[in-house]
C-alpha cells in the first residue's frame, strides 16, 4: 500500500461516517418524529447527488489522468488518484504540436477568431436589429421573413458553396476565412430585435427633442439598456466560434492556421494512445471556457432560459 491510497482510504472512511450520520438523522426524523416529507427529499437528494457525481466524473477523470505517467494512464485497473503528480505532462502536451509550434499558437488563432467574430457579429446584429425593431422601410416584412427563414437552414448546406467562394477569393488558410463568413448572425439579429422592441418609443421622442440622431440614440440609449441581451448574444457567438470544428477544419490546412479545436483534433490523431498528454491538452482547452462560465453564469442561464420562452 502506498501513501496516496492510504490517505484516500482515510478519506473514504470519513465520507462513509458522514453519510451514515445523515442517514441516521433521516431515519430518526421519519420513524420517531413521523415527518414523512423528509423521506421524499432524502430520495430527491440521493438522485441528484448520484446524477451529479456522474456529471462530474468525466471532468475528474480528465484532470487526474492529466497528471499520471503514461504507464499509469494505460494501466488496468486504473487508479482513482495518481501515484505521482506529473506537472511535466502539461508542458509536454503544450509543446507537442509539430515543428516549432505550440498549443500557444492554436490558442492565439482561436482567440483572434473568436474575439473578432464576436465583436463584428454584435456590431452588425445591433445595427440590423435596430432597423427591424424601430424603423419603417420598404420590404421590412419580407427581409425579416428571410432572416427568420435563414435560421432553419443547417450550416452544412452552406459549407460546400462557402468553401468554393473562399477558394475563388483565395482566402483558404487566412484569418478572413475563419472570421468574415461569421460576422453576421441571424440568431443574434432576432434575439436583439425582440429585446429592442420592448424599449418604449418615448425615449426616442425625448432624444429627438434633445437633438439626438438615430445612431447616437442607438449607442447612448438603446445599447446601454440592452446589456443582458448583448452579453447573451456575445456568449453564444463566442462559444460557437471557439467550439467550431468543421468550418476551420475545412478552410485551413496549414498547421499555422489551426484553431485550438482543430489542433486538438489533430493531436488525437498524432498522439495515438498517449492518453495522459491528451487529457492534459483537453484540460487546458476546457479551463478557459469553464472560467468564462463561472464569471458569466447568470447570463448563460438567463439567456438560454429566455430562448425557450415566448415573450
Amino acid at each position: 500500500m502506498n501513501e496516496a491510497s492510504t490517505s484516500s482510504g482515510y478519506l473514504m472512511i470519513l465520507l462513509v461516517c458522514i453519510y451514515a450520520a445523515i442517514i441516521a438523522t433521516v431515519c430518526y426524523k421519519v420513524i420517531v418524529q413521523k415527518k414523512r416529507q423528509i423521506l421524499t427529499s432524502a430520495i430527491v437528494y440521493h438522485v441528484l447527488v448520484i446524477g451529479g457525481l456522474f456529471m462530474i466524473l468525466p471532468f475528474y477523470w480528465m484532470a487526474i489522468t492529466a497528471f499520471k505517467s503514461l504507464q499509469e494512464a494505460i494501466a488496468f485497473p486504473p487508479s482513482w488518484i495518481p501515484t505521482e503528480w506529473r506537472w511535466q505532462n502539461f508542458l509536454d502536451a503544450w509543446n507537442a504540436p509539430p515543428g516549432d509550434l505550440t498549443f500557444g499558437r492554436y490558442f492565439f488563432v482561436s482567440i483572434v477568431t473568436a474575439v473578432a467574430s464576436t465583436a463584428g457579429t454584435l456590431a452588425t446584429a445591433a445595427l440590423a436589429a435596430y432597423a427591424f425593431a424601430k424603423m419603417r422601410f420598404i420590404g421590412k416584412g419580407l427581409f425579416f421573413y428571410l432572416v427568420l427563414a435563414m435560421m432553419m437552414v443547417p450550416g452544412q448546406v452552406l459549407l460546400i458553396p462557402n468553401y468554393i467562394i473562399l477558394q475563388t477569393l483565395n482566402w483558404i488558410n487566412t484569418y478572413q476565412a475563419l472570421i468574415v463568413p461569421w460576422l453576421a448572425s441571424v440568431f443574434c439579429i432576432f434575439l436583439m430585435r425582440q429585446f429592442f422592441m420592448t424599449i418604449p418609443d418615448d425615449l426616442w421622442d425625448a432624444a429627438q427633442i434633445d437633438g439626438s440622431g438615430r445612431f447616437r440614440y442607438l449607442i447612448m440609449v438603446i445599447l446601454p439598456l440592452s446589456k443582458p441581451v448583448l452579453i447573451t448574444s456575445g456568449i453564444f457567438t463566442f462559444l460557437a466560434s471557439w467550439n467550431s470544428l468543421l468550418w476551420p477544419l475545412i478552410v485551413t490546412n496549414s498547421p499555422h492556421m489551426r484553431t485550438l479545436m482543430v489542433g486538438l483534433q489533430n493531436f488525437t490523431e498524432e498522439a495515438g494512445s498517449k492518453y495522459h498528454l491528451l487529457m492534459a491538452a483537453s484540460t487546458f482547452a476546457i479551463i478557459p471556457v469553464i472560467i468564462l462560465f463561472f464569471f458569466l453564469q447568470r447570463f448563460f442561464i438567463q439567456g438560454i432560459a429566455r430562448t425557450g420562452l415566448k415573450d
Binding site: 451529479g52 480528465m62 486538438l264 483537453s282 462560465f293
Partner: peptide
C-alpha cells in the same frame, strides 16, 4: 451548475475524454 457544466465545455475536448473513458483495454 453541476448539471449544466458539461454543456459549456468544448465538444472536442470532452469527446477525447469520453473516448478514453470507453477504451476497451484500460
Amino acid at each position: 451548475t453541476v448539471y449544466f457544466l458539461p454543456f459549456v465545455t468544448t465538444w472536442v475536448a470532452i469527446s477525447i475524454v469520453w473516448k478514453y473513458f470507453y477504451h476497451r483495454e484500460f
